[in-house]
């Protein structure tokens, strides 16, 4: 696979899912259990991505400048600071720690 293959397949899949909502009759996914699982799936995937993005380095787990950056980001989200500002501050925290260590 090349990067373009990955992008094309993933884009086709997500677009097909969007279309499915308008083409197939409502039913299965509106039942309580599937709807709940679909909802929690989003939470689980995002949380797992945060963990890997914060602690992973290939197949190693490392604690580095990303950890304090994410903690600062969490504090700012709790204070309802807008997304873009938080992302920039998080990058700045990590960059600052790396520059001065």
């Amino acid at each position: 696979m090349t990067t373009w293959h990955i992008i094309l397949i993933a884009s086709a899949a997500t677009l097909a899912l969007k279309l499915a909502g308008y083409l197939i009759p409502a039913g299965f996914l509106e039942r309580e259990r599937p709807a709940r699982i679909a909802d929690l799936l989003t939470v689980a995937l995002l949380a797992a991505l945060i963990a890997v993005q914060t602690l992973g380095a290939g197949q190693d787990i490392v604690i580095d400048a990303r950890v304090p950056a994410v903690i600062v980001a969490a504090a700012l989200y709790a204070l309802r600071v807008p997304f873009v500002v938080v992302v920039i501050v998080a990058a700045a925290v990590a960059a600052g720690i790396r520059a001065f260590s």
């Binding site: 993005q53 400048a65 920039i88 990058a91």
Partner: peptide, 13 residues
């Protein structure tokens, strides 16, 4: 530039 930390912060958002 800390873009790896920015990605984690984006997922958190």
């Amino acid at each position: 530039w800390g873009l790896d930390a920015a990605a984690a912060a984006a997922f958190l958002g």
